[in-house]
Design a protein around this nucleic acid. Structure first.
Lengths: 201, 201
DNA sequence: TCAGACATGTAAGTCGTTACATGATTCA
DNA sequence: TGAATCATGTAACGACTTACATGTCTGA
């Protein structure tokens, strides 16, 4: 069995952006990737150690005066090679676990009103997320249009790069990733409206 | 920790449609639910046994002459109650693992051509699935419009119900579930076009 | 001072996947 | 006859989640 170890490559890929601590990785994934990827500490810290053991990352512990202890991991050439060869491997189709869809699908024994309520709750939930995503996308679009990525974005987006071109590229990729999430949510909301209409007649 | 046991409720919900074997459940999930839910034998068979142990399902083994052995599980009143109370509990937001998005997001160090190729492959992959879904949706829409669900659909859809109204309701729910999948895929394809255009300038 | 964020980590348990084992029946 | 499908099931492993433990620093 070709063990997949996707967490390894996800972390390796993040380290190829810039050196990070386990905490940084968790924060970055939660802030910007949660609509298509999730990781948790229970996976992150052991994986980082195993990357070090495999010489795909190196750790550097520092406790600057008056600062908290931080363990920052950097990717090695070996790690970078491994990551790049994984990118070229076949990509699995998206895997979704949508509990609302499951409930809805199984609801045909229940009253129509019950099913409609389920869908309405889903729509409300998705609408809230959509608002946040649109806000972030707006900030990024402005940065791209002005041709200048403000330093302030670095902390929000956790991006960095030496050259302006590289920073621009990262900004664009982040923006497009967000757009994917926005489109997915919009599709769900449109479906809610369709489903409610369809069920009410 | 409130252990979730979603597989339990998924199976319970399917059994509320009609009595089924583990094999039936796997086939049904693969055929119609895989865009938002997946189960495998390693989960299904032990869960069925545990449902029997909890008196939420009963098993009936039969080996009709000249037929294969089948173990069919039916939901009990207790099981039905458990399922219905789960439906009313809060619903988790969809969880997605989209490997393409992960690769794309992490690709800003790579050549633009590489990233474009990734997206193009994704588009091709999603387009293929879209074709299948649209075919199935067409069959279901025709059945709904004619007001009559052909017996032939029973085997394809694995649906059944005593009354015509109940069959109609199941048909509608199946149709709408498919529509959710179609909209999700369409959103991904539209995104691919947007991303390719955006990256090429 | 004290809540909340920063920061690292482990243990226990559940969930999910894959491979394997077994055997019957159908149909070309 | 032999491949494909039907059908049930388990073992082993890997992935993932949650709760917990520990301590530091910042800012109101």
């Amino acid at each position: 069995m070709a063990t997949k170890q996707k967490t390894r490559f996800a972390i390796l890929g993040l380290l190829s952006w810039k050196p990070m601590s386990g905490y940084d990785i968790k924060k970055l994934v939660d802030a910007g990737l949660s609509h298509f990827w999730n990781e948790n500490y229970g996976q992150i810290y052991p994986t980082l150690e195993s990357l070090v053991a495999d010489k795909m990352a190196v750790k550097r512990e520092s406790t600057p005066v008056g600062k908290r202890r931080r363990i920052v991991y950097s990717i090695t050439r070996k790690g970078k090679r491994a990551f790049e060869s994984w990118v070229r491997e076949p990509t699995d189709s998206p895997i979704v676990r949508n509990e609302l869809q499951l409930k809805f699908f199984l609801s045909s024994d229940l009253a129509t009103g019950e099913a409609v309520r389920l869908v309405e709750e889903y729509r409300t939930q998705q609408n809230e997320i959509l608002g946040d995503y649109r806000e972030s996308a707006k900030v990024l679009r402005r940065a791209m249009e002005s041709g200048y990525v403000p330093e302030a974005l670095d902390d929000i987006l956790h991006i960095s790069g030496s050259t302006s071109k590289q920073r621009m590229r990262q900004c664009k990729v982040f923006y497009l990733t967000l757009r994917h999430g926005i489109r997915a949510i919009e599709a769900r909301i449109t479906w809610c409206n369709e489903a409610i209409t369809c069920m009410e007649d």
